[in-house]
Design a protein around this nucleic acid. Sequence first.
DNA 1: ATACAATGTCTGCCCAAGCAAACATTGCAT
DNA 2: ATGCAATGTTTGCTTGGGCAGACATTGTAT
Lengths: 160, 160
Amino acid sequence: MATKHYDIKTFRSSESIGYLLKRAQARMQDVAESVFAPHDMSFVQWIAMLKLSEGQAQTASDLCRAMCHDNGAVTRMLDTLEERGFVSRQRSQQDRRVVELTLTATGAAQVEALKPKLIDELNLLLTDFSAAEFSELTRLLDKLYQALDARHSAARQGVN
Amino acid sequence: MATKHYDIKTFRSSESIGYLLKRAQARMQDVAESVFAPHDMSFVQWIAMLKLSEGQAQTASDLCRAMCHDNGAVTRMLDTLEERGFVSRQRSQQDRRVVELTLTATGAAQVEALKPKLIDELNLLLTDFSAAEFSELTRLLDKLYQALDARHSAARQGVN
DNA sequence: ATACAATGTCTGCCCAAGCAAACATTGCAT
DNA sequence: ATGCAATGTTTGCTTGGGCAGACATTGTAT
């Protein structure tokens, strides 16, 4: 039997991973938005462009999966990024359902221009974290996501 | 000089705390909602009631701060919780700006009824986490929040 | 006493995210 | 070849959060 991390007798909201995640993410969102807002750009928009620039995503679906973002929201986000000349769309020849996304030169420049601003902010934020703490937090967040993702996929198939 | 966890040369989205947090939180949200949805209850609603039941919050403002949630959203959430008889509001005598919140018996019962469901789900989710990993993740998430909160307060005062 | 800043609650408005449906395309099974 | 499930993209609709302002109340400085 696996370790029971939570017990009904002792459970407190302040120890719940769900609550801790929500709270931290909400604040992080604020901080990130404050970095990008002066450049008329949202956190998700920038992350999407970053994913494209890293080659981690080529299509809208890739972005949805990578960012856990809504389909429709991504379509509309791409609309505005395209309008602003940061991203271009081109119907794929191999699979005509797919629209291939590419960063324009302007878009790539925008990504690079904002990267140091975000990095500075993150480093400032993590001042009190040792290298070990930082890498452990990174690792555990990724591990948690993998577990959540597995659970999520299972749920979609009605497994319990 | 503090440790520079991120460097512009090597920065990758998949290591960014902001991205990792957003992704994990989005999935966690899904999982939590799937627990509460059958009972016509949202994750935030339940957390709010839990906070009340733990005595961690007495007023709407307390809930806002504790949960990093919007003022207006909390007001409206309390409207529906009150309608459903889970929460009652009463104007404070000491400070007549304040509305004191109390869980009704029905509300308390609802919190208790759903607690084991959430706990089971969380334990299942964290099966592959050792006790050490679990407590370290909890600690680091809290530490991160403290740092974010300090940064957030500083920003509100225009400090850089 | 009075003015003013800070706090708590509530409301109206706007916008982005979530949901569901539509449509096109592809791969697979028969 | 044909039907069908799966995938990718888009759109309309609904819902809830974020923001700004209104209002009441309190504490504080003058």
